[in-house]
Design a protein around this nucleic acid. Structure first.
Lengths: 195, 195
DNA sequence: CAGCTGACAGATTTCAATATCTGTCATTCG
DNA sequence: CGAATGACAGATATTGAAATCTGTCAGCTG
């Protein structure tokens, strides 16, 4: 909050924007607020981001990237593909659920941001799907999975588990049977992947 | 629209309400509009429905019941369970897609109504899931499917295909690869169901 | 007298005036 | 001279007063 007198960088603006979004929510967070938090005029912010939309998009990308970063470790692991796939899906569900349940207001804020920003979300989904493809391809190589087209299969697995990672279903993640439902879907998919 | 002088029945009120919703949309459709369409005072409407919310719920139920009625024929059929399941899922996807694509405004109206009305939607989903259970149970009996708990499996199949029937994904139903995505998910699930 | 009406209170929505915000750019500052 | 400022025009959001709506009910009507 202290108007540090370091040089103004895109990075610092993004941090301030996240803070402003956290405090004011997506509807009331303004560029003027961000500039005020940094102790500069709002004109300076426009030197680093052409529009408010671009600023919000950059914040959204950062947030999505943090999530996919958490999972890439599992995808790159070297355990049995079947276990790796289960772990990856469970980690994805757990991460989303933690974010949604832990700070519902912030999660709602980012839900608004992602819905503003189809492109960034598309890239994020492409990233996650490619992590999944990597796991499935590994399984095909070891003979644990049968999949004619690993990429299409990864897409199908991602879509079939959508209820457990798509933010539009966040309400349902805290319902009693959620965990059991998740396991049932994953079990069915794992059976479908076996040769 | 003609203020028919038949006796005022719940049925006629529901029809008029659907018409008013179709014309004005969910935000601007008022009980006064419905009464005007029927040529009665709004007080008369309240004789048949305790509140505006109850009236909207009844309209929602009717709409949902029409959809599940379309599918019950397939679920009750006597063909091979595997084909029946594919047909049922395809019919569900086709029906939803037809409704969403054919009259987007009306679909948006009903999307608002369903989101207002968790209970009615819950019953509708329970109905659809029980149709699915029936098909899966038949498959278990003929040996076409392996499912320890047909009801839980039906739930899993329904949830895994959510992207292709849940209204919150309606936007995606008209995208290029939608049909292929649907087939990929269904294929994977069918493989998972085999003994 | 069963069903309908319309006036009413309180809640909600609309609308237009006012304030704030976004994005630009000529000017200032270091 | 490059980075930052702040005044400005047009767009968007806020506000509060006026209009409309919801739900009730005493009384009217056939």
């Amino acid at each position: 909050m202290a108007p540090t007198s370091e040089t103004l960088t895109a990075e610092r603006i993004l941090e301030a924007t996240e803070e402003v979004l956290r405090r004011h929510g997506p509807a009331k967070a303004t560029v003027v607020d961000v500039a005020r938090a940094l102790g500069v005029s709002h004109g300076s912010v426009y030197r680093h981001f052409r529009t408010k939309a671009a600023l919000r998009e950059a914040v959204t990308k950062r947030w999505l990237d943090r999530t996919s970063g958490e999972l890439s470790g599992i995808a790159a692991g070297d355990g049995a593909p079947e276990a790796r796939l289960r772990d990856w899906l469970a980690a994805l569900f757990a991460a989303k659920r933690r974010k949604a349940g832990g700070d519902p207001e912030l999660f709602a804020t980012y839900t608004v941001l992602t819905s503003e920003n189809g492109a960034a979300v598309g890239e994020h989904i492409a990233d996650l799907t490619s992590q999944l493809t990597r796991i499935i391809r590994a399984g095909v190589e070891t003979g644990d999975f049968a999949a004619g087209d690993p990429q299409a299969t990864a897409r199908a697995v991602f879509q079939a588990t959508g209820r457990f990672h798509d933010p539009s279903h966040a309400r349902e993640w805290e319902e009693p049977g959620a965990e059991a439902d998740f396991r049932a879907v994953v079990d069915l998919l794992m059976r479908g992947l076996r040769p």
